Computed example of a mutant assay.
Amino acid sequence: MTETIRNYDSQVIPYLEVYKEENRTKKRWHHTRADKETRYAHYYQHKTATLSEKERWGIDLIKIGLQRAVRPVVSCSFGIDSIVDVYLTRKALIELGRDPSDIDIVWNDTANEFQDVRQYQKFITQEWNLRLKITKPEKTLKHIIMDNGGVTDDYFFTRKGDRTKNKQPLSEKCCGTLKHKPMKKMIKEHEWDLVIVGLRADESTARFQAGLRDGEFFYSNSEWKSLVCRPILWWTEDDIWDYVAQEDIPYNSLYDKNQIQEYPEQSKLIQMIDEFNEQLLSVGLDIEKLKKRELSTVTRKQAILLKKKLKFKLFPPRTGCMMCPIPVKYGYMSWMREYYPKVYNAMVHNLGYGKALIGMVPDDVKEEIKQFLGIDVTADNAHEFLQEILEFKPCTFDKL
C-alpha cells in the first residue's frame, strides 16, 4: 500500500492550462487524478487487507492531504462513516504533531435533520472540541416541493441523475438546494482547499463507479474546486462497525433503530438460528425472542448479521434529510411510522406524499380497502379519503 500512497502523492498535482485555439481562449485541467493502476490498486488490495492495514492507509492518505492543504475541512453529517473520517483525521493530526481539533468540520444542516443527529452533534462537538461550521439552505424542503409543482410518483422512484424526461428530478433538486449549493458557497467563503469526505464505494453502484473513476485522492475541478480525500472509500460496513467497537467511538442513537420488517419462514429461521447461534449471541441478540419473532428493533451490528446471514428483511436508517423520498421504496414509510409518527404524518399529509403514494400501494391492499371501505384507491380523488384509509389500515404505505 505504501507504493500506492506515493503514486497518489506524485501523480495528483493539478494545474490549469490556459491556451489559444482558433483565436479563442480555452482552459484545460491536468493531473487532477492518479492513473488507472493507482486508482484501482486499493480496490483490489482492500479485499484482503486487515482492518489495521486499512486504518493505516486511511491515516497516511489524510496526512498527504493535510501536508499539502492550507485550509482543510472534514465534511461531516454526524453519520457513522463521516464520524470515522473525523476520528481518522484527528489521529493523522496527532501523528503530524498538531492539535487534533485544529481543522474545520463542516455540517450541512438541511433544516430537516433527525433529533438523534442534532443531539449527537452537540455531544460530540463538545466532547472532541470540534471547530464546527454549519451550512444552511436558502429554501426549506416544503418550499422546494411547492416551487416545483408538488410531489408526484416519480419523486420516489426516479433516480438522481436520470434525464429520461429531459428534466432534473425533484429529488436531485432537493439535494442540490439543501446540501450541494450551501456546501459550494461555504467552500468558496472559507477557501477550503482540501475536503475530507466519508464516501464508501459499497453503498451504491454510482459510488463504486465514482470510486474507480476518481480514486481516493483527486482534484475536483468541476464540483468543489478543491482536493478531495476519501480515506474509507474501500471500507465495508463491517469494517466501519468493527472499527467503532475497537476504538470505542461514540455514535448517534439513530443507528440503534433498525427495524425488522420481515422474518424468514419459521422452519428456515430455526435452522439458521441453530447454524449461526454463536454469532447471534456475540452481537447480543436474544435467541428465544428471535425464535418467537418478538424482536422488532435491533442495533446496526445485529441488523448486518441478520440481513447477511439469516436473510431478514430490515430497514437500517441513515443520517440526512428525514423526509427524503429516496428510501421510500425500501420500507422507509414503515420505519418512519413506527419511530417518528409525527414526521410521518407531516410527510403524508402536509408535504403531499400520501396523495402521490396512494396509487402505488400493492394490489392486495387496494382490494382490501375497496372491499371494506368502498374506496377505489386508483381513482383521481382517492387522496381525499386518506385520513379514512389510514385509520382503517395504518400500514397502507408500509410496502410499496
Rank of each mutant, 00 (worst) to 15 (best):
L130I: 10
I287S: 14
S171P: 03
F392T: 00
V86M: 01
D9E: 15
D102L: 11
L178P: 01
L233Q: 10
P316W: 14
A379T: 02
C175F: 04
E216L: 11
F123K: 15
E53C: 13
S253K: 09
E22R: 14
G176N: 15
K366D: 00
T319N: 03
I105P: 05
L386S: 03
K268I: 04
K142E: 07
T48K: 15
G215F: 11
K26E: 02
D364N: 12
Q302K: 04
Y120F: 14
E367F: 03
L269A: 08
E294I: 00
D9T: 06
S77T: 09
V151P: 00
K292T: 04
E22C: 08
W107R: 05
S220D: 09
D376Y: 01
W235F: 07
R118L: 08
R24Q: 15
D85N: 09
L280W: 11
Q121E: 05
M322G: 01
E172W: 05
M322F: 06
G352A: 04
G58V: 08
K139H: 07
L96G: 14
S75E: 11
M146A: 15
L386Y: 08
W128C: 09
A69H: 05
Q387H: 10
A379W: 06
K292G: 10
E367R: 13
T50R: 08
E216A: 13
L132A: 06
A49T: 09
I134W: 05
I105T: 08
L254Q: 05
Q387Y: 13
I83A: 02
K173N: 08
M347F: 01
I249C: 12
G359H: 05
W192I: 05
P250Y: 14
E21D: 12
A303S: 10
W29G: 12
Y43A: 12
L306D: 07
Y19N: 14
S334F: 02
P100S: 07
D104N: 15
K393Q: 04
K36W: 12
C174N: 01
D153E: 10
C321L: 00
F217G: 02
F372T: 10
V343R: 15
I187Y: 08
K91T: 13
T125N: 01
G161A: 03
Q115R: 07
Y43F: 15
A379M: 03
N129L: 11
Q45D: 14
G331A: 06
D35E: 02
I5T: 07
P182R: 14
Y120G: 00
